[in-house]
Nucleic acid binder design. Sequence first.
DNA 1: CTGTATCCTTAATGATACTG
DNA 2: CAGTATCATTAAGGATACAG
Lengths: 130, 130
Amino acid sequence: MTGMTQEQDDLAYNVFAKACPSRGTLEHVTGRWGGLTLGALQEGSLRFNELRRRVDGVSEKMLSQTLHALERDGLVHREAQPTNPPRVDYYLTPLGHRVAERLLALIHCVEGSMDDVLAAREAYDTRQPS
Amino acid sequence: MTGMTQEQDDLAYNVFAKACPSRGTLEHVTGRWGGLTLGALQEGSLRFNELRRRVDGVSEKMLSQTLHALERDGLVHREAQPTNPPRVDYYLTPLGHRVAERLLALIHCVEGSMDDVLAAREAYDTRQPS
DNA sequence: CTGTATCCTTAATGATACTG
DNA sequence: CAGTATCATTAAGGATACAG
């Protein structure tokens, strides 16, 4: 009980610190394609090309790269059937689901705020610079 | 009651669609510096250089650019005192607070999962490629 | 179908210097 | 202090071709 006590916000990891490994994981999770990929997989497993269609605009290369990073971080599981033609299913791990849940809450919050955001932009763009 | 009905997920905006304006806002919010900036401001208003110290690693240029985007989207408010030397305070709008709340839930989830993430990476990196 | 490899282009970022 | 402007560098992304 001496030295470091264990309070609820006494975290070993801190994204605000440049060198903390959590910053890299946060970037995988919130990156341009990482967030949408996790969001898409929250509903259930998807195959590579299903995912590609779901995440509108992603290229093969970026999706592949994104999936590798998420798999390495333990958020996504990859299951390959040794059939011909090959069939590969991607789905979230329990950890991935917990992260995706928060991510989707954020996504829905943003989607639901877009009328306000667009109005704010309009106001910002039309105001006179003093 | 004909035509489009209003269900809970019948959203006007959809980040999964490439051309939806919500995708751009999501990127501002989850971008490399946008997320950390919003997270830092959730606790209260900060001045430019305070923010810069808080968001470890951000350059003047990127912080300035990030703040402009968040201000334009109506998430951050900028208040300049006409003093000399100048004093400028940044703080979240009500909308910014709602977004930052979800963002911090995600951040804390990631920070709290890092032991698992690091273990997953270790396993991924040491396994034999079949 | 599920990717990988390569090349090329563009966008993001960083460093530095400078202004009000 | 609070930025802007410019330049140089780097990283991200896209297109295409091809392999298992």
